[in-house]
Structures are given as C-alpha cells and as structure tokens.
Simulated assay, not measured.
Amino acid sequence: MPHWSVYTGDSEPHDGIDDLPAPPPWRAFDGGPVLPVPRDTDDGAAVSPDRAHRARTYVAAPETVQLVNAALVLRRPLLVTGPPGTGKSSLAYAVARELRLGPVLRWNITSRSTLSDGLYQYDPLSRLYAARRAVWRAGDGTPGAKASGAGRPDDGPPAGTDVEEHLRLGPLGTALLPYGRPRVLLVDEIDKSDLDLPNDLLNVLEEGQYEIPELMRAARRSGPGATAEVLADGTDAPVAVTRGRVRCRAFPFVVLTSNGEREFPPAFLRRCVRLRLRRPDHEQLTEIVRAHLDTPAGEAEHLINRFLARAADGELATDQLLNALYLTGVAGLDADSRDALADELMPYLSATADGDGF
C-alpha cells in the first residue's frame, strides 16, 4: 500500500488517520479551539445496527481505496456516482468505522434542500414565544403583564431567549467545526437538489468555513470574544462558536453521492475527486455475499449466476440478491420454488424487455 494511504478497505478499525500526510498549502485550515471527535456511542449517537453491519461488511474495490485516500490527502470532497445498490452511501460508513472518525453526519438531499439547511437551523418564532412566556411569568400572571423593571439594560435577556437556544448546527455545519480528526459527512443524492445547491456549496467547501449571521449580530452587542454554546448535529452536547464564525481544522471527509441523473457545473467537478462505482462482477458478488451471509457455497453460486444473467437485461441492485439469498435460505424451498421466489425478489429497477420493469 502506498505510504500516503491510510484507508485500507479491510474494515478493521485503526488510528492510521493520525499518519495522514500534511495537506497541500492551499488546503490547510487553522480553526480552533480543537474539538475531539465524538465516539459512536457518545450522547446517544450510536450507529444503528443496520448501518454498523453495512460498514463492517463493505467490500471496497482497489480503485475505491485509492480514490478515498486521494480525497483524504487532498482534503477534497469525493463525488461518488453509480447505479443504485452499488454501495455509494455505505462507503461513508465504512471509512468512518475503519478510521475511527465518529458517527457519520448525514444530509439527505431533496429538491427543496438549501445550503442553510445543511449549515444550521434557526427558529425565530420559538425565540419570540420564549420571550413572551418569560415576560408573562415575570409579571403578575395576566395577559400583557410585564415584570417590574423588565427591559432595563442591566436586566439582560429573559431566560430562554438567547439566540443560541433556538439554533442548531446542521450536518454540514457540524462537519466544519474544528475537530482534531476529519468528520465524515455524507451528502446523499446530491443530483436531486435544486440547480443552485452544488454552486452554493463551492465557497463553503473551498474555504472550510462559514458564518452564522444571527450569532454575529448577538456578538456585536456582547463585545469582543463573545461565545455562544450551540447544539451540533446528532448530539445534545453543545459546542462553542465564537463571534458567529466557524472554521474547520481537519477538513471533513465529504462523500457526495449521485445516481448520475444530472450533470454538475465544471467549477464544482474540478473541486471534487470523482469515483465511479460499477456493478460488481462475479468475484466481487461472491465476496459481498460471503461478508453478509453464511449461505452455502453451492446455493450462493447458483443465485449469483441467476442474478448476473438477469442483470444483463435490466437494472438490478446488489441488495436484491442479498434479499433473495436470505429469504430463500430461511424458507427451506425446493430448487424450483427457490428460483421462482428469487425472480420475484429481483424485479428490474427500470424499464426492460419485460415492458413495465417487473
């Protein structure tokens, strides 16, 4: 393995990320103070059993291993494209597990997603309601009552009305905190986004930093060094943000997945390391099945060949094969019934010679 590689793809957790080469001078970041990466079990952020299984059993091709390491060393996002079911999102969990980078921060993209959704969410209405409740409770209990002396400069804001109490960092905003190790950010199905989102991401991913205007305005009133305690994505533990500015230290490992349904702007593409996942061949499928299931060799071989034969005529996903192997294994069917059930569990994902995709 090249000396600059830290991800091996063998799924065994290790601390090789500490040996990651220094970043290129144009990709070095100096945010602080340095934060420790949370463990998967911190603050209830444990990985769900299904994702833990996917991370542990992920089978990485040599090209995948090489390009993951390239993205880590260059501090660039990894744009992963390929047909459904080829393990695009599972790759993020596999890298996080092997390199001990904490829980994956996941941002599921829809046509309505905006950059601010990924950075942070602020609820001004809840702050307004909190202020009204605070005035009510401080007064005599009647509508419109106000506490004696309320509103004087030395009173300070009522409890529950500070901006940070109604603001929470999103997955992208959390990934850019100054962690000592890179966090893993999965931006899933970015090709479903509005046309502007990839371009909107450019500046944030290029600069490794962003600002929170609501906290910056509050900081101007509080004076130099004003720090707010805000909640990060996936945890109930607050983190400190000084004067409303966030800058990363270890650039996150960003995995952007796409089913190839659209083209991206050249300016966006040139800032990414690009990985194209292809459908696994017979050897890779055999290894994937072995990692996931204890299916007898003969039965697995038969259904793998059947899967590959069907895949020649239409689009199938690897998890369809795994579903068929698992269910036919527990059903105890004869050979003919097993094959018929397997075919029912492996419908085409797009229009084929069958006409309607089924």
Score class of each variant (00 low, 15 high):
A250N: 00
P238H: 07
L72D: 05
Y93M: 08
N203P: 01
V6S: 02
T57N: 01
V68F: 05
V95A: 13
L325A: 04
Y210K: 10
D200V: 01
L321I: 07
A237Y: 12
A60F: 04
A228P: 04
V255Q: 09
A60K: 03
T142A: 06
L74D: 05
S222I: 04
G87S: 11
A267R: 12
L125C: 09
S258K: 03
G355A: 04
A342Q: 03
V246P: 00
R247W: 07
G355P: 00
G156S: 12
D334I: 00
L202A: 11
K88T: 09
G149E: 01
V187W: 07
G329Q: 08
H53N: 12
E211V: 08
R247S: 11
D18H: 13
E207S: 13
D40Y: 02
L35N: 10
D162I: 05
D233N: 14
R306P: 10
Y58S: 02
V204E: 02
L20N: 04
W107A: 09
R39F: 10
L325I: 05
H282E: 15
F268M: 02
G180S: 03
N199K: 04
A147Q: 12
A138E: 12
L115E: 07
A351W: 08
V104S: 11
A28V: 14
R100L: 15
D281M: 08
A55Y: 04
A150H: 09
E12T: 10
R132P: 01
V184G: 09
D123W: 10
R54N: 05
E211N: 11
H53D: 11
Y120T: 14
F358N: 12
R127K: 14
R54C: 03
L256K: 10
P171Q: 02
E261H: 07
T257I: 04
G32M: 12
A335I: 06
Q284S: 12
D162T: 13
A145N: 07
D343P: 01
V241F: 06
V47R: 12
I17W: 13
R306H: 14
K192W: 05
R152M: 15
S116Q: 15
P280R: 10
Q66C: 12
L321S: 03
T352L: 00
